[in-house]
């Protein structure tokens, strides 16, 4: 059963609706002891990374997240929270994966936000992308991106520059795109996470 970290950063209707469609059971994590009720954890998040981090700290859940040993999936801003730092709000984040979150503005000639379906290139045999054709399109909406890097990067996307579409370290996994809005391949990714 999947626990969704409920810290008030954006609406979680879409992710719960996707899990429902896939017959994956889930519940909400509102306090540190709630983590014990679930065998997998999703950290959602939309909006401002600095503000989201502040809410996460205020919720009292951030220290417990760092100590988790069960599979964790960060989505969009929930992904960025796992990194060391974001230029959005000049914020220090959880620091679980030693990467930086940077602004597209000023670094690419393309329009910002990066909005729409973009193809990604992922590592072979990555369990998160099992039964998904490489170079599939996923739905992105973001103005900040995680730097491209090979130690923790497991999927790359290009938007004026290469950036991390997905990263992982030990039991922590994260995707910049929205699997809950990415059609069949997004649903397959959620099923894969549930099988980890």
């Amino acid at each position: 059963m999947i626990g969704i970290v409920n810290y008030g950063a954006g609406n979680i209707f879409s992710i719960t609706a996707a899990l429902k469609r896939l017959d994956i059971s889930y519940g909400m994590i509102n306090s540190p002891t709630d983590f014990d009720l679930y065998d997998k954890i999703i950290i959602p998040g939309v909006g401002h990374a600095g503000a989201a981090m502040q809410k996460l700290v205020e919720s009292g859940l951030s220290e417990t997240i760092k100590s988790l040993k069960k599979p964790v999936l960060g989505i969009c801003v929930g992904m960025q929270l796992l990194t060391d730092y974001s230029e959005e709000g000049n914020a220090d984040l959880l620091g679980i994966i030693p990467l930086k979150t940077l602004h597209f503005e000023g670094r690419v000639a393309e329009k910002v936000p990066h909005m729409g379906w973009n193809s990604i290139d992922f590592q072979n045999n990555c369990p998160l992308f099992k039964d998904i054709p490489n170079n599939s399109y996923f739905y992105f909406v973001h103005s900040y991106y995680i730097e491209h890097e090979l130690t923790y990067g497991i999927a790359t996307c290009n938007y004026g520059l290469p950036f991390s579409a997905a990263i992982s370290r030990d039991n922590f996994w994260a995707v910049q795109f929205h699997p809950e809005k990415s059609g069949k391949v997004g649903e397959q990714l959620l099923l894969n996470f549930n099988e980890l």
Binding site: A17, K20, R21, Y139, V141, K181, S182, G183, E187
Partner: peptide, 11 residues
């Protein structure tokens, strides 16, 4: 909106 968000997997 709720009915669409529940049943549709695109934005």
């Amino acid at each position: 909106v709720k009915a669409v968000a529940s049943q549709i997997n695109i934005p």
